[in-house]
Design a protein around this nucleic acid. Structure first.
Lengths: 239, 239, 239, 239
DNA sequence: GATGAATGAGTGTTCATTCAT
DNA sequence: TATGAATGAACACTCATTCAT
């Protein structure tokens, strides 16, 4: 739609066009033809810079992810108490997801949830691998391709999970006593599955809130403080 | 994998095969060739009964959705207090999503979230329409196609939203006083956006819990009672 | 050029067109577009029947090869002495190569000689494998693809090599005493490398003669009897 | 693999890289990108010096061909009798082909045999032309391109054919009395087609021996003396 | 002289849909 | 009613060649 500044370098113009097209169409339905048309360049140029469709997409993701992680770490570190950390995390994430809704949906859905029965794990050597519940394995190339997206999600969630874990350790967050729960502690990351679940729960709430319902009708701070209150104190009215 | 009972009518065998293939591959990557191969029938037969790929998929969704809605209404109606209704809702939903994870992910993502900037609305005549933030319109055929999936999601969420709304009306759920909030009450459905947001929040939590983290390691009842407790009372430890 | 009989089944028309195009252009430069245009059909049809370019080509080769092998075995078996067998072999081969010059050049060159440093071998289990002088390995799929062409050539040459081997065993053919020669006897096929070399030598002569110089200017019988005479008695004039 | 001496002039480094890449990949599959990467230079440089892919390849061929022709003429001239000349020819050729297997296969196959139905001829003015059996003509540019490769092959074969022709003229080689044979004497080069055929036959044997069977397991002299013996005296055992 | 960014026609392959039987 | 042969638009990706600096 909006033309891309023709004075920009081709590489940059391709990235801008790619972000737009991927966001609107999703990964599979996005076509390189639409991207190069919008970037007003040739197919060879795209391939010269990015090699293939997936690398182009990952370049987009990686850059944004790295900046997000920096912000996430910096802003949560500034806060002392759990409530502050949670709100800092959510503020940062909310702003990010409002900007990158389409892209992050792709990472979540097309590159993660869509691969049913396949889950990332960490093997004996500390390397990430994909294991399948059904015993079938992915081609190694495809595995490597997916793994980098799992890492992106995992890193973003880990920041939150660490906050929640610290909250439980310090006694300020509830720790549900569930008989199976000990068995599913993740030894590699020292996070209880509960913390992970909690992180997912909260995170998913923000994400879905951002993705579907809320579209710039609340101020950011206002929205996140509501979420944190709900998370800590629940939705029940105090009597 | 498992062969389909060859004595079943063709139409039914196609539906069984379609459910399997769509669940494993997602909508776009599922191919009609794989479906007819599994159903051991011909392409003409599939088209005779279902007309096209989307109708086949929707037939699948509609059938399951109708049963789900019946259960949802019946089970929540049995309960008197909000806590009971919430748990009934979640129990029902959780069981359903564990069964139909792959299919419902498609409805959420591929047929909903993937269409960025396009939102369902209700026009002056009370009809559902799709409006685009960017001003461009979908072909009417495509619009009709998407709309029915939006309705599916909406109806499922509405049950929860109604519970939450009743909770707010009766004073048992908090009602955040937010200055913009009055403006975004949805007059057609008498739901505050807050209720909608809350429904999404909770729902997303269940969904994501089901989709990603929890895989039959918790008993259903156990899990939903934890969720409801968190929802009502929050995660903060009581002192 | 010449239109293909439009009453023929599509599959047959594709094969006819493919033979023409592959023969004229070679494997790599032949395009499926040209083939379907000549066959007056669609790309989907081609892929329905043959799956991919290589399978289309191999279908062509396999059919012709099988018929050739039948003829080669039958005609050489009819003859008693080595001279008769050689001439029978050559007659058959000559006729075949005159018909299928282009196709068999592809098998020789593009699918065999072009893979420098890669040679077919037989492993401990009696299976064909490709081994590389340089230690690098082919992707298994590519290996399987090439192997079937090596087998084609090997089988055709083996018939001749067996004749030559029998000639040496019976004392009617010279057996060069070469110090290294014992070491390179091929144990799997009980052929001395000398026999193989001789077969190649003779065979290559026919092939190249057919391919490049002789174009239907000699009668078949006439030509092959000259070749066999040269092979047995040499080119030197008797004094 | 092995890095190219960076102190060499760019032009020379491109030729070294080109020889390596063409030899390993064949003409069509060789890419200029791989060549410039190995030569550590830019594409512009390659085009500055060589104009296009084919000129680059031909430069390689021409240089080697010229040296080969010098050697071929010198070494065969040194010998007096036909047996000595043949062995000198083969020794020289064998050594050359062992070095330049990949390159010369390209000339034979990709630039010669692959063009089915197209044959070099000499017109009334004594110029080489390409004539097609099918009546269609090549673009003149393409014709000129191919012609120079035909000449290369022809010159190399002619040396051998001349030896054979001399052998027939002097009575030391058999001259098959074949009724059509007078008609196909090539008046321009004073070679009987028989001589040509014999040259091809022998030559092809060397070539194929070198290409496929013999890989440095025989000493050169040893191998060529076997071939010459076979050629002159045949494979039949003397009684 | 040397460069390398930019190009776009061309290639193998996929798959929803049609329609004659 | 049931079929499956036929289709062709669409897609990711390749690579020789050009040309401004």
């Amino acid at each position: 739609m909006t033309a891309i500044d023709p004075t920009l370098p081709k590489k940059e113009r391709i990235l801008i066009a790619a972000e737009d097209v991927f966001s609107r169409r999703g990964y599979t339905k996005a076509t390189l033809d639409e991207i190069i048309a919008m970037a007003d360049t040739g197919k060879g140029t795209l391939y010269k810079y990015f090699g293939n469709k997936d690398n182009l997409f990952y370049t987009l993701i990686e850059e944004k992810h790295n900046k997000l992680m920096e912000n996430l770490h910096a802003l949560t570190a500034e806060q002392k108490d759990i409530s502050g950390k949670l709100q800092a995390y959510l503020n940062c994430m909310l702003k990010f997801l409002r900007q990158n809704k389409g892209l992050w949906l792709i990472v979540w859905y097309e590159l993660n949830a869509a691969h049913q029965g396949i889950h990332p794990d960490i093997d004996k050597n500390g390397n990430w691998v994909l294991t399948s519940f059904y015993g079938d394995t992915l081609p190694t190339e495809e595995e490597a391709r997916l793994l980098r997206y799992y890492k992106v999600l995992w890193e973003e969630i880990s920041v939150l999970a660490d906050i929640l874990q610290a909250g439980q350790d310090s006694g300020s967050l509830k720790y549900t006593d569930c008989k199976q729960i000990k068995a599913i502690i993740d030894p590699m990351h020292n996070l209880t599955s509960e913390a992970i679940f909690g992180a997912y729960h909260l995170f998913a709430g923000v994400a879905n809130g951002v993705f579907h319902v809320i579209d710039s009708r609340f101020g950011d701070e206002e929205l996140t403080s509501i979420i944190v209150d709900y998370f800590l104190n629940g939705h029940a009215a105090k009597q």
